[in-house]
Amino acid sequence: MKNQFDQFSGTRTYITSAQLRHAVNVAVALERPLLVKGEPGTGKTLLARAVAEDLGMPLITWHVKSTSKAAEGLYVYDAVQRLHDSRFGDSDVSDIRRYIKLGPLGRALTGDERVVLLIDEIDKADLEFPNDLLHELDAMEFTVAETQDQYRAERRPVVLITSNAEKELPDPFLRRCIFHYIQFPDRELMSHIVRVHHPDIEKKLLNQCLQKFYWLRDLPDLRKRPSTSELIDWIGALVASGVSLKEVEDQIPFLGSLVKRPEDMDVVEGSGRKSARASSRWV
């Protein structure tokens, strides 16, 4: 049985580091939002699903867009619909509550059971967006201005927030969060992760793939380094097409699934040629 603190231990399909598990558990125990940052493709969004699954709570996701407003997360008052209804008189417009639609945050705060709330890519929205959420995340309560209805979370949701560092988040907001930076997985962790997705892959092939993958990532001039999800897709393509170990040793088949920008292709080809030339110089 799990004890009070170590509630989150990772799931079968989601591999975490001990540090990340610790951070999740700290956030759950202290009832503070967990802010997760890290390179794209390190599984920030998947973490929320894994946490929800592991804690046995429903997951509510709020995908933040560049146009998102904090208030929309709580509720939207559909005034235009009400106006239309009033013109055509085909429904009861006197009940204003019919036009209040709760947003993801609103649902997370008003539900009967404790939920996991994922606020995904908070940095996409306007710079002031996180500040506008401060009160609701702190007090876990809100008021619908139109009806003066007050809501207060019976059970504080577990809040996970992801950011790609596109915008800097305001200090007061950061101070309230538990912070974790997902480091790019090292080889050992990465082979675990790959095995979850491709359990039958041969050890030698996997090692060779990882070698090529980390070699690519270490190229200094690469603009966009391949991520975990791209590695998994790439290995999927290799396995599906039955490429031999030798072929992966000699070249990088399906390079396009790892490297996507034309200028990065040039970089890869350039350095591949250089190393080839170096080895054949004295032949």
Partner: peptide, 25 residues
């Protein structure tokens, strides 16, 4: 956090706890 025992009574745990709470970026 420490009062709740979130450091797992080890210095390593305390390091992780302190880092998660004190570091913002």
């Amino acid at each position: 956090g420490a009062a709740k025992g979130l450091h797992g009574s080890s210095l390593m745990g305390f390091y992780g706890l302190a880092r998660a709470i004190l570091v913002k970026d």
